[in-house]
Amino acid sequence: MDRLREGIRDALTEGPVAGVMGLILDGGHPRPHLFTKGRIEDLDRLVVGEARYPLAAVLLKVLRNDLDAHLGIVARGCDERAILELVRNVQLNGERVVVFGVACSSEQASACQCPQPYPSSHLSGERVAPVSDSEGLDRLDRLSEEERLQYWMDQFGKCIKCYGCRNICPMCFCTTCTLDEDDLIQTGTIPPEKPIFHLIRAFHMAERCIDCGLCEAACPSGIPLRTLYKKMRNVVTTRFGFTPGITKEGKGPLQYLGDGKFGEQEGH
């Protein structure tokens, strides 16, 4: 933690970094905060591991107003995956975002069922093993098609269309959203038209979801959203050898014309 504070302090006072996004304890509650050179003393209130926030999404909001700002972010494994994916999708400038890594504890990793509970390098914590949770998926894959349909229609039927899943998702960076499209999804009903509402989101997440689990944690109806998106991630990995959140370069298989199955990325 001291190394983390020091690293941030040095970058703010000596380096080119204008601000660092992290969590601060405010009245006993952690919330996002932009640490700056002018208020170095705020760093005493920096916390890590107190709560999960889509910090990358908050950073993106700040950078939307000032694309060239040189900012840093205190990032767990999931935050870094989100940053990489946002850079790959040309939402963030990778040259301008500095990651101050934090490795999660094994308790945190198992609470999150995290596929990679550490960023590429870290200033705080120790690397612990990933927790792979395919139990939910395996169980569903073993059911008959009819049972799976029953299952998902029941789950989708619980949705109150609060948009919490979309709003918390660090990968939902679009400024207009298909889920708001009246021509596509009938408005004025709860639950929203099913299965289309959830399947549209699932399709969009296929080559984007970084498996952070924030959507499922946010859903007031307890819909196993992460399992659905995990499946879509797996589909894209199996079919095209592409997994979101690993590299900041290149295009996802559904983002370019040309063949992604048999050869090199073709065309544009």
Partner: peptide, 20 residues
């Protein structure tokens, strides 16, 4: 080519949610 890729992903999704 893009259509072929999308159809593959859609078919897998339709299977997973039980539509077929």
């Amino acid at each position: 080519y893009l259509t072929a890729k999308r159809v593959d992903v859609l078919r897998d999704m339709l299977k997973f949610v039980g539509i077929g």
